[in-house]
Simulated assay, not measured.
Amino acid sequence: MAALFLLATLVLGGTLFLVLPTLEPDDRPFLRIPKSFDDLKALNGLLKKYRDIYPSRIVICYVITYLFLQAFSLPGSMYLSILGGAVWGVPIALPLACTCIATGATLCYFISAAFGPALLTVPRWKARLDTWSEKLHQQRDNIVSFLIILRIAPLPPHWVINIVCPHVGIGLVPFWSSTWLGVFGANVIHTTIGGGLDEMTSAADFHLISWKNFFLLSAVVVGVLIPVGLRYYFKREVASAATVQDPDLLEDLPGDDRILAVGPVPLPKKPTSPLYVSKGNTFYSDRQVEQDQDIDDDDDEDDEDDEDIILEAGPAIVIKSSQDGSSSGSATH
Score class of each variant (00 low, 15 high):
Thr332Cys: 09
Val289His: 05
Tyr233Phe: 01
Ile161Tyr: 13
Thr99Trp: 11
Gly329Ser: 10
Ala153Ser: 12
Pro55Trp: 11
Glu199Ile: 08
Gln288Leu: 03
Ile101Gly: 01
Asp303Arg: 03
Ser330Lys: 15
Leu7Thr: 10
Val122Ala: 10
Pro117Thr: 05
Ser202Gln: 08
Ser210Leu: 09
Val289Glu: 07
Ser178Tyr: 13
Ala105Asp: 01
Cys98Gly: 02
Ala8Cys: 14
Arg231His: 06
Ser202Cys: 06
Pro174Glu: 10
Val228Gly: 03
Arg128Thr: 01
Arg57Met: 00
Cys165Lys: 09
Ile259Tyr: 10
Leu96Thr: 02
Val188Gly: 01
Ala114Glu: 12
Gly185Val: 08
Cys98Arg: 01
Asn162Phe: 14
Asp300Gln: 15
Cys100Leu: 06
Ile309Tyr: 06
Leu7Asp: 04
Ala93Leu: 11
Pro271Tyr: 11
Leu46Cys: 07
Pro254Leu: 12
Val228Asp: 04
Phe234His: 13
Lys235Leu: 05
Pro75Gln: 04
Ile170Arg: 15
His207Ser: 01
Thr22Val: 02
Leu96Pro: 02
Gln288Pro: 02
Asp303Met: 03
Ile143Pro: 00
Gly116Arg: 09
Ser77Leu: 09
Lys126Glu: 12
Ser145Arg: 06
Pro264Phe: 15
Ser81Lys: 06
Gln288Gly: 01
Val224Ile: 15
Lys135Cys: 02
Val19His: 14
Ile152Arg: 03
Gln323Tyr: 07
Ile189Lys: 01
Leu172Glu: 02
Thr65His: 15
Leu80Ser: 12
Ser240Trp: 01
Trp176Gly: 00
His158Arg: 13
Pro123Phe: 04
Asp296Phe: 08
Ala3Asp: 00
Thr179His: 06
Pro315Trp: 00
Gly89Phe: 15
Phe17Arg: 13
Ile170Ser: 15
Pro25Arg: 10
Arg28Glu: 02
Asp256Pro: 14
Asp302Glu: 15
Ile58Phe: 11
His167Lys: 00
Leu225Asn: 01
Arg236Ile: 13
Leu107Thr: 06
Ser133Gln: 12
Lys270Gly: 00
Gly169Ser: 06
Ile152Trp: 14
Thr103Met: 13
Leu43Arg: 09
Gln291Asn: 00
Cys165Met: 14
Phe206Met: 08
Ile309Glu: 05
Ile310Val: 09
Pro157Leu: 13
Ala153Lys: 03
Pro247Gln: 14
Ser240Arg: 07
Asp296Gly: 02
Glu307His: 09
Leu150Cys: 09
Lys126Cys: 02
Ala3His: 04
